[in-house]
């Protein structure tokens, strides 16, 4: 075994031992999930709402034999699984490895199925089946479906046919059949965007750029606001000149285009700054998950401080 591999193996073993020690042999522990039993439907079922360790401690202190707040083994396993997935994805930073590949494969599989299930229950059932055959949907999954929205609409049969044609793409033969619904999707997208971009991103943007170059506020000339407006108008015009390739960028046109490039560079610099800001926040929340939810090293929201249960607790 290579020396580097031995080192990493040793580090992993030490890390795992530290986690085991922290979770089993320290008073504070780590990585446990708790639930609160909430009766629903007049007590016919019990729903397990997430609860904090602090609430559990508070409940135990108030009534040691209570059963409302409980440790949840399945959710604790889930939490450790989430931590494993997080670390597995992070491990890619060091180099491609089987842990990352497994996590990536799970990500692809779960995501695709997740979208499918959402599309099925949120759109296909209520908006397609429910429009063609509302009685079936009412008897099966949506007993609450009623009123004028629940009237059968035969025109939706056309969508059903188009849907089947679209799914035909999965069949080994007759791929051209899917072109018809695809053509509809492309056509409607083009129709929607043509107007929206022309109106919102072209006409109104021109309107937004027609700004007063001498701002008079309460009878007083405002030089600062006037300068800002002037810079916006000139900036937009310079950039547009730069985008014109119908004539050569020489002389006055070249100078204007050059100014346009500078405005664009400032724009890209701002975009870079904002992008960095965004990416850091995305990393921060994952590290917060590891430190707070899993390792219990920090507790910024006081979730593990024994809570005095307000109304609703231990009722």
């Amino acid at each position: 075994m290579r020396r580097e591999n031995v080192f990493w193996m040793a580090l992993l073993v030490i890390g795992a031992a530290a986690l085991l020690w922290r979770s089993a042999f320290t008073t504070e522990g780590m990585g446990r999930e708790y639930v609160r039993a909430v009766p629903v439907a007049n007590g016919r079922w019990t729903q397990s709402d997430p609860a904090t360790y602090g609430e559990y401690q508070g409940a135990e202190a108030a009534l040691p034999a209570q059963t409302e707040y409980q440790f949840s083994l399945p959710r604790t396993i889930g939490l450790w699984l989430a931590a494993f997935f997080t670390l597995a994805i992070f491990s890619f930073l060091f180099g491609d490895n089987p842990f990352y590949k497994v996590a990536e494969a799970v990500l692809v599989g779960v995501s695709a199925a997740y979208w499918m299930v959402i599309g099925f229950w949120d759109v296909i059932v209520p908006n397609l089946v429910g429009k063609i055959w509302p009685a079936l949907v009412r008897a099966w999954a949506m007993p609450g479906l009623s009123g004028p929205e629940a009237e059968p609409s035969p025109s939706y049969i056309v969508v059903l046919v188009l849907s089947v044609m679209l799914l035909w793409r999965l069949a080994p033969k007759g791929g051209w059949i899917a072109r018809w619904p695809l053509a509809f999707i492309i056509g409607t997208t083009a129709g929607l965007r043509l107007i929206a971009f022309l109106h919102g991103d072209f006409l109104v943007q021109i309107r937004n750029t027609i700004l007063p170059l001498a701002v008079i506020d309460g009878g007083v000339f405002d030089p600062w606001l006037s300068l800002q407006n002037l810079l916006i108008v000139v900036g937009v015009l310079c950039c547009l000149v730069y985008f014109f390739f119908s004539f050569e960028h020489q002389g006055a046109v070249g100078a204007t285009a050059k100014a346009g490039i500078w405005v664009l560079m400032i724009t890209f610099g701002a975009a870079f700054g904002y992008t960095v800001m965004g990416r850091i926040a995305l990393l921060a929340i994952r590290l917060e998950f590891l430190l707070d939810d899993w390792l219990w090293l920090i507790d910024p929201t006081g979730r593990r401080v024994a809570a005095l249960l307000a109304g609703g607790g231990l009722g």
Partner: peptide, 14 residues
């Protein structure tokens, strides 16, 4: 026409 129910399946009229 699109939201025939809320996300819990309750009809709009209810």
């Amino acid at each position: 026409e699109l939201y025939t129910t809320d996300s819990r399946g309750t009809a709009m009229q209810d």
